[in-house]
């Protein structure tokens, strides 16, 4: 069995237009998953990792792991930097530490991206249920 490819990245989160539109009354709908349950990767990083636009990948940090769809970043090149729009998917894995100032560490957490073919990206509700269960 060949070892799964892995990509080490620094993860950041932030706003996007799609995410901003989706939070207006459509958070419980599929549109929110498509807007915020995604990770934008540098195309060369994607190639190295062997994933295509729309593939499911697992993003894992010291604080958790989440399944999201891979997306080609329109803002490349930014090798080694991955972007998940702000929302429950990003928040499942970001560093919660407030560094004693009340502000969690939303940008710059070390993460590992691996392909997760055949797995499913959870919607906001299921993600929450998983969090509460675990």
């Amino acid at each position: 069995m060949t070892e799964l490819k892995r990509l080490e990245v620094s993860l950041i989160t932030g706003r996007t237009i799609e995410q901003g539109e989706a939070i207006e009354g459509r958070k419980m709908a599929q549109g929110y998953v498509e807007a915020a349950g995604v990770v934008y990767l540098d195309p060369e990083d994607m190639e190295e990792l062997g994933v295509w636009e729309g593939d499911v990948v697992r993003v894992e940090t010291d604080f958790g792991s989440v399944l999201v769809y891979a997306r080609r970043s329109p803002d490349a090149p930014h090798r080694g930097v991955a972007f998940i729009p702000m929302g429950p998917w990003a928040n499942a894995i970001i560093n919660p530490s407030t560094d004693s100032i009340g502000m969690p560490s939303f940008k710059g957490v070390k993460a590992v991206v691996t392909p997760a073919l055949g797995e499913e990206v959870l919607d906001a509700r299921s993600l929450l249920a998983k969090l509460r269960g675990g």
């Binding site: 939070i23 604080f63 928040n91 894995i93 919660p96 969690p104 929450l128 969090l131």
Partner: peptide, 16 residues
């Protein structure tokens, strides 16, 4: 506001 969507999992866990 929607802190469940926008707070880290650790905070959401307690909130829930």
């Amino acid at each position: 506001s929607d802190p469940v969507s926008h707070f880290p999992a650790k905070a959401v866990k307690h909130l829930a």
